[in-house]
């Protein structure tokens, strides 16, 4: 049998190209829906600006932080389909290892995710610019240190004049990617990811309720700084999704008025490292989850 000519396996590149096409087709209905929404929204904004040509609002850059949740939404949308490594299906009878195939499909959908985010951004900026918005003028911000994110005397904090940097437009791409990787890992790891998500949220809610009612502050005291660190820390969730450029709080000044306060200066380097950490952890979790679907593993036998 050694002199037999075996049929060759497809290259990873070919499989990736084909899956990108397939994902594009699968996402077309979603894309059309989003496009319709964008057009409607854009028309509304333009109409408002024509009817009421008051001082144009600055570009609402805060919304950029919310864009990243699209990264969570994509696996949810795709997960409703019939092709999943947990169930038998035609794609798994093809000559590609099941775990590898599942990861390639995730990567192929990611391409379209980036296209979607790019389109969203371009449209969003374009519409608002046409409506007359401009980048916000530099503003004064208080800067609190990481070691003491909620100082008693905010008035004595240093201030800085800061405007949105060029790299703020890159944030949605990497933030979406990170959230996409983590959510995809969940969808690869469990048969019922929705249940796990609901379960975690419910658990967190119950925990908060329990701690609140029973005044069991010991538990909460331990959890609280860890949680805050994860969210507000140097490479935390807010750094990932907003570049750290969304103020942590608005402080009432003793002399009157309010001023926004950063926890730590938002810098390009800090944001890049944060994104790198979250994305690489997400990819690591994805690969680990994919191991469950190694060829010939029991992930779906027993129907």
């Amino acid at each position: 049998m050694k002199d037999m000519e075996f049929h060759p396996l497809p290259s990873t590149g070919d499989v990736f190209k084909e899956q990108t096409r397939t994902m594009g087709l699968a996402l077309r209905p979603l894309g059309i829906g989003v496009a319709i929404f964008l057009v409607a929204n854009g028309a509304f904004v333009l109409y408002r600006s024509l009817v009421d040509p008051a001082t144009p609002a600055p570009l609402p850059t805060d919304a950029l932080a919310w864009m990243s949740f699209v990264g969570m939404g994509l696996p949810l949308f795709l997960g409703r389909g019939s092709v999943t490594p947990f169930r038998p299906g035609l794609p798994w009878t093809l000559p590609v290892g099941r775990a590898r195939h599942a990861l390639i499909r995730v990567a192929a959908a990611w391409i379209w995710l980036m296209v979607g985010v790019g389109a969203l951004l371009v449209w969003y900026v374009g519409v608002h610019l046409m409506a007359g918005s401009a980048m916000r003028e530099p503003m004064l911000y208080l800067v609190a240190p990481f070691s003491n994110p909620r100082p008693a005397e905010p008035g004595s904090l240093p201030t800085v004049l800061w405007s949105f940097p060029w790299w703020i437009w890159l944030v949605p791409f990497l933030a979406t990617t990170a959230l996409y990787c983590w959510t995809s890992a969940l969808f690869l790891a469990t048969r019922h990811p929705g249940r796990w998500l609901m379960g975690t949220l419910l658990g967190m809610f119950l925990l908060a309720l329990f701690a609140n009612r029973t005044n069991f502050i010991h538990l909460f005291d331990w959890v609280d700084p860890a949680l805050m660190g994860l969210l507000e820390g140097r490479f935390g969730f807010f750094t990932l999704t907003a570049g750290g450029a969304v103020p942590a709080a608005w402080v009432d000044l003793p002399a009157g008025g309010r001023m926004p306060m950063f926890v730590g200066m938002p810098t390009f380097g800090r944001w890049l490292v944060a994104s790198g950490l979250w994305i690489s952890m997400g990819i690591g979790l994805m690969c680990l989850a994919a191991l469950r679907h190694r060829d010939g593993s029991g992930a779906w036998s027993g129907r």
Partner: peptide, 28 residues
Amino acid sequence: LGIDARQDGPRVRAQIGYVPEEHSLGYP
């Protein structure tokens, strides 16, 4: 064809034309 099915799944599947029991084409 002499290839161990457990060790080298993808290569085995590349040599096979398979009609499964279920009537399903995967992508409705």
